[in-house]
Amino acid sequence: MNPAICALEFQSVSKIYPQPGRNGRFALPDGRYALRDVSFAVPQGATVAVVGRSGSGKSTLLNLAGGIDLPSSGRVLLDGEDLALPGDRRRTLLRREKIGFVFQFFHLLPHLSVADNVALPEWIAGRGTANVRRRIAGLLERVGLADRLADPVQKLSGGEMQRVAICRALLRQPRLLLADEPTGSLDDENGRLVMDLLLELAREEGSTLLFVTHSRELSRLADEIWQLQSGRLERP
């Protein structure tokens, strides 16, 4: 795979969570690491679903991909840049510029309105301009929440909240979208609707989407399905 067109690449990545008093290693129930020797490359614009049981390492994989955590060994490359090298400041800025997150529990701030929650990434970047407000309005209209800009997020349903979270993740047109069980807190119908929306918007925005799910049905919506089992990645 040509690294120049890979949004995300893992090269022999392993992650160990040390347990104090046991040689510094934390062993999962069957004795394997959280992630073990994982290698892959995701082309730009692709959609990849990662499936696996609880405790298989899915969230760890997302954390490493998002630069939130660092591998114990191996390399994680975002747009060709090794996330372990630049230090916390550079990693944070990379995250700000290039990565969007969608979480299972939405993680919207209850004291902010719908529009303010979407605007949060731009506030962090220090750019709350009129252009941004237009983009926010456009995104919310796209997800069917144009008339809810000023509403407090507690008034929204679960599906609506996740849609707001998707808008927040896409606000800065990230290269990479990471979704951790985006439908995990929703019922089947809403889950399907949200997933369709996520995929559609990711394609429209040109973002690479890597999402974690335990639903086989939803995983089939992706271009590729990868399986994580006991920290090891199995690809078709």
């Binding site: 998002g66 939130i68 916390d88 400041r89 944070t92 800025l93 995250r95 700000r96 510029e97 990565i99 997150f101 993680h107 701030l109 949060l120 990434p121 962090i124 970047a125 927040r168």
Partner: peptide
Amino acid sequence: VAELALYRCLGARR
């Protein structure tokens, strides 16, 4: 804690 972690995820510096 969750809110602060969210800021960090979204690219807020320390």
